[in-house]
Amino acid sequence: MSYFRAIDPFPLESAEHTKLHEFYARLAGGRLATTRCGGCGATTWPPRGFCPECASDRFEWVDLPAEGTVHAFTVQDAGLPAGFDGPRVFAIVKVAGHRIFSILTGADPGAVRVGQRVALAPLRVADDPRGHPRWLPAFRVT
């Protein structure tokens, strides 16, 4: 038997595993969605199944703009987790007033600037153990 390791850092995205499946279904189609509370109408990022303001668990899906601006960023060169390559540009992206944590793909790390415009660029990662494709809400410089 070889050295044994097992960890999956990616979320389980299919309908059988998460209430937030609709988010990932829309993401696969290039749309950035989140939840609006069915009780008080608050729209939050990230999407959630319970409203921290009014304690409702009713929600509906709404699309956010697929573009935003860089609010803050850092470039990590070393000390990345197994399976993740550097340099890696981590960023907080402002979209319609929401702060979204993500990475910028295909960016020149030396050329990224606060205030720069970026667009949603869904990133396909490893399929889940049952072969369902999985996506993350990454961004790219426009």
Binding site: R5, I7, P9, F10, P11, P46, A72, F73, T74, Q76, G79, L80, P81, A82, G83, F84, R88, F90, I92, F101, S102, I103, V125, L136, A138
Partner: peptide, 30 residues
């Protein structure tokens, strides 16, 4: 060593942060 760092990703939100490869250094760098 990179497996030890991967484990540190359990301390941030898997779904919205660790899935991107986030651990502590970029947070404090911000």
């Amino acid at each position: 060593g990179d497996e030890a760092i991967l484990n540190m990703g359990t301390g941030v939100d898997r779904e919205w942060e660790a899935a991107f490869g986030l651990t502590a250094p970029p947070c404090f760098a911000l």
